[in-house]
């Protein structure tokens, strides 16, 4: 027996746009996860992999161990965090391209691991995940993440991060512990992406290893680059625009790659010292290229 009955019109409206409303919130979280890494001047192409790890971890915790949603979501944050530590500790000491390449590698190894394991359902993925997440858990998570990031941005840590973006060498000379900040940012970003993955698994009920590939990673990057890094609100705006666009212009869906690609190129080329890149840019200016 239903506890309360919505008027049919509203019910139908919610039903029709449910997936879209959920996607907006989840993409918002993913954009924030990308923002956290870019905010310290690093580039991760593993956000989709972290998301997939969170999705699988939480789905398995729910399906095999019967954990509650909050507990499963906690798992969805901790396991990607561990992966971020493994990937980040050797690479973040090196120039920025190493992290980018290593995170691509992570995505591939992980996909193959899911594909090869019967425990994770192999290529068929996991289905029948209870749809326990909803408006409250998704937008609640987004709100909490947003508030925390705003608080951090305004604190001493935030000022240190800004200093790193502006001039990494100077920041290092001022005694900011660069590797610790970078690793902290990567771990936090993996947790956010994992949380998004956990929520995604618990609203879509079906996940498969190929959902979290390179294309997804690039889409997440385009959220953050379109919105910019001025504040935590900017990347969320980018996610909202890029999620709504294909729905508003259905015909655009076919050109999704063209659109995301152009956005990245235009954002980086024509605003190299502008809102988007200037802030995260300065690292690497004086770092010598490896040869």
């Amino acid at each position: 027996m239903p506890e309360f009955v919505l008027p049919e019109v509203i019910d139908d409206f919610l039903f029709t746009y449910q997936n879209l409303v959920y996607s907006l919130g989840i993409h918002g979280l993913l954009a924030l996860s990308m923002y956290v890494v870019l905010a310290v001047g690093q580039l991760s192409l593993g956000q989709a992999a972290f998301m997939g790890l969170g999705a699988y971890a939480s789905a398995l915790l729910t399906l095999k161990l019967g954990w509650s949603l909050p507990a499963a979501l906690a798992g969805a944050m901790l396991i990607p965090a561990a992966a971020a530590l493994i990937i980040g500790s050797p690479t973040l000491r090196l120039s920025g391209v190493y992290l980018a390449l290593a995170t691509i590698g992570l995505g591939e190894v992980q996909r193959l691991a899911f594909v090869n394991s019967d425990f994770t359902g192999g290529a068929l993925g996991l289905s029948g995940i209870p749809t326990k997440a909803g408006l409250v858990s998704i937008y609640g998570s987004l709100l909490v993440a947003l508030v925390l990031l705003v608080l951090v941005a305004r604190s001493k840590i935030g000022r240190a991060m800004e200093a790193m973006r502006e001039d990494e060498l100077a920041a290092g000379a001022l005694g900011i512990n660069l590797p610790a900040y970078k690793l902290g940012a990567l771990v936090a970003s993996a947790m956010l992406a994992g949380l998004a993955g956990g929520l995604n698994a618990h609203v879509s009920s079906f996940i498969s290893p190929n959902d979290y590939g390179f294309d997804a990673a690039v889409t997440i990057l385009s959220f953050a680059l379109l919105g910019g890094l001025g504040s935590p609100f900017a990347p969320i705006l980018g996610a909202v625009i890029l999620t709504l666009l294909p729905e508003v212009l259905r015909s655009l869906a076919n050109y999704r790659g063209l659109v995301s690609g152009s956005i990245i190129v235009i954002a980086v080329m024509f605003m190299p010292r502008g809102l988007l890149i200037w802030r995260m840019g300065r690292i690497g200016v004086s770092s010598r290229r490896p040869s």
Binding site: L43, V97, Y255, G261, S262, I264, P272, R282, I283, S287
Partner: peptide, 19 residues
């Protein structure tokens, strides 16, 4: 511009060209 900017531009370019 820093090296990561170039990496990102070529990433966007690749996506565009493949699509």
């Amino acid at each position: 511009a820093p090296e990561l900017s170039s990496l990102m531009v070529t990433l966007g370019g690749t996506l565009f060209l493949y699509s």
